[in-house]
Amino acid sequence: MQHASENWWVSGLVVLLSLIIIGKVLSAQRGRVPFIRRIPGLNAIDEAVGRATEMGRPVMMVPGISGLDVVTLQALSIFSYVARAVARFGNKSIMATIDPIVTGVAEETLRDAYADAGRPELFEEGDVRYLTGQQFAFATGVAGILIREKVAASFLFGAFYAESLIFAEVGQQVGAIQVAGTTQTNQIPFLIAACDYVVIGDEFYAASAYLSRDPTLLGSIVGQDYCKLLLLGIILIGIISTSLLTLIHGGPVAHLLHTLVDFLKVK
């Protein structure tokens, strides 16, 4: 197990980053609501749901293949917004899950979303489907639903691995408009190749803030940006110090730079 005492510098940095984020959240809750830029992939949600409704075909949502962790909760948070849009349009949505715990939380999320949109009667028990706990059996199950139900809009948000291309390509084959986002950087190229819109990197975590415009979430996004600036500053100091060390070979300045570079190195 890793412990903070193995590297107090990195652990202290984590605490500092956490304090910055919490500080910005509290500041936003007190009324200092920040602006965040446009994210095209998330603007496409209404367009995709509207198109599916016009075609009289359902909307599919897949919250990744991990258990109930932060990534899946974030995906469900995005799907809550998608489900509200689906309910507003009076369409039907299907969510496939690989984890039984996620199934329960997903059912509650969708039920609440339909109720919020004023259409609780549209939610049916079979809308959230636990398929299996096996990765490729799940992939086959999702592909089957996409084909049998002739899904017109597919949303893939969460942790995806090798099966991501199966979902995205089958969705492409049935002519579904696809919006995707994953935390697995290795899968992003596959999703970009096969989906219409992809949210990349931390846009995945910014999605719920962008969609809900909730001050708490917006504050958290701004906190993350301040943290990025801090990390960028540290990286720049490291680059400049290392570069200067190639020019300065002796004396107190070189000693200082050596100490700084050693301090910044991740052990």
Binding site: S18, S80, E108, Y205, K228
Partner: peptide, 20 residues
Amino acid sequence: LTLGLLATSLRYWLSLERGA
């Protein structure tokens, strides 16, 4: 992504999330 994970985890842990 890591900063997003940290921020989201903090929001869930401290129940700052106002969502579903």
